[in-house]
Design a protein around this nucleic acid. Structure first.
Lengths: 105, 105
DNA sequence: TAATTGCGTAAGTGATTGCTTACAAATATA
DNA sequence: TATATTTGTAAGCAATCACTTACGCAATTA
């Protein structure tokens, strides 16, 4: 059972869930209301998000509130950002190219 | 056939491939040499990376060289970075908390 | 021209995914 | 105490995934 952040965010529903609870802590039913699919389906998505550490649950009576663990998102950021130097370099090159074109016209 | 960047980078082998060709353009066989699995398996991974726009292929004779399209990586970056404000805020709160603790001891 | 090299693709397979419905447990309310 | 609410989990299922082996084709080299 591979459970890493990259696999967790691969599913569009799970990315939407993250989008929902990023701004406001919600319980499972409140999250499920935002989707067409069944509540157990959402429950299973939350489980995956919890298992990889992206979401943490705080139980309060019979409600289970979901909070994002943003440090985990930072893990993804770290992976992508190692390549930023490459794409910014390319953009720089493009800008130089464009400014040359502007001069020549 | 869902082919988006998030699903593409979900697989660890594909992330490794990206890591390989980020610094140096390689042909398919050169990429495959770095892995235990068969060449067709790598070929299929490259196909997925190409279909979602993360890799572009330049044919040169019988060699097909693979180049990363870094703008596509920027798409992932954009998604993660929208949440950065949340995790940096949390870090700020932690730092304040820690400095208070240091003072009280 | 014959052999080699670099590659895509088809078919097959077992594991995993993303859902469903059905059920049970625990907490809260009447 | 009986009922309603919030939830987890099991079983089942079709679709997809990540691989394999087997093959064919085009470009290069001998």
């Amino acid at each position: 059972m591979r459970r890493d952040v990259f696999q967790a965010i691969a599913d569009p529903t799970r990315r939407e869930i993250i989008g929902l609870i990023a701004h406001k802590t919600l319980n499972l039913n409140e999250i499920a209301e935002n989707f067409e699919m069944s509540r157990p389906a959402i429950s299973q998505h939350i489980k995956i998000l919890t298992e990889c550490g992206l979401v943490e649950i705080t139980q309060q009576g019979r409600n289970r509130y979901c909070n994002i663990q943003f440090q985990k998102l930072a893990e993804i950021s770290k992976w992508v950002e190692q390549y930023r130097i490459f794409w910014t370099n390319k953009l720089d090159a493009l800008e130089i190219h464009l400014s040359k074109e502007t001069k020549s016209t």
